[in-house]
Design a protein around this nucleic acid. Structure first.
Lengths: 128, 128
DNA sequence: TGAACGTATGAATACGTTTTCATATATACA
DNA sequence: TGTATATATGAAAACGTATTCATACGTTCA
């Protein structure tokens, strides 16, 4: 039989060299997961709005809710996520808890993301 | 009666000045959505791995699948998402379609995201 | 034209996330 | 201690996303 497989070993696809190089350069799995994780945290418009505010001022939970129009409960849930990703700091003062964005790296990412959105074509996904 | 509401108008929360400032500085809704959108696209480890490879070389779909171990169909679906977000370019050559990361802004974001993941505490979220 | 290959896509399933509601916890103060 | 206020949280509901399977489409070549 020997069907017309003139070339490469088991690689069905025609570029074993590219595949080889790529495998060598590939991101470590844990690193890819960690990278996706930080982006996933930033990938929600409510969190973007909250973090944008928290990047330039300290705010308590109810101020955040009032300023953004997001329900207090949702704000709290989102802050918990941000806390567990270690990108906000918080301190209690009496009944209130004040939060700030506490990761310069993330602040930079956020700025760049906003900048990207600002300068990118508003028709972002209607030609799927 | 007049319950103990010694202070501010309708703002239940104690910092109307902060809330006012924050409202003024708040991100426009469309901008927040667009920002979250780009992060959401980057917030998946398979797409991170694909984009990392595509940021330094051109690859066809089946090479991508072979190099990453992601199913061809899943690769294709993800590429469609990346295409609709306009962050990859593609060209057909015969039966094959070659893709590249085609947005320096996004390449920068990706690099920063990877960098963040690399230098950040591996225990990212077990103290929720 | 038909077979083979590479890629794309609809639909179903499985899974994860966000929001809301109700309520718990923490603090302050009378 | 009891009440009011600020925040947190579990659980359900609502919603979105990823993966897989089957198959369609587009291209090449015999």
């Amino acid at each position: 039989m020997t069907t017309v497989n003139t070339n490469f070993g088991d690689d069905a696809c025609p570029h074993p060299d590219v595949v080889g190089d790529a495998k060598r350069d590939a991101l470590d799995d844990m690193l890819a997961l960690g990278t996706a994780e930080i982006f996933r945290v930033l990938g929600d418009s409510n969190r973007v709005r909250m973090l944008h505010l928290l990047s330039t001022r300290e705010m308590c939970v109810c101020d955040l809710a009032a300023a953004t129009g997001i329900e207090q409960s949702a704000v709290s849930h989102n802050l918990r996520l941000l806390r567990s990703a270690r990108i906000v700091r918080f301190r209690r003062e009496g009944k209130q808890v004040f939060y700030t964005l506490d990761d310069d790296h993330v602040a930079g990412l956020l700025r760049q993301g906003i900048d990207h959105a600002r300068h990118s074509n508003p028709r972002e996904e209607d030609d799927a």
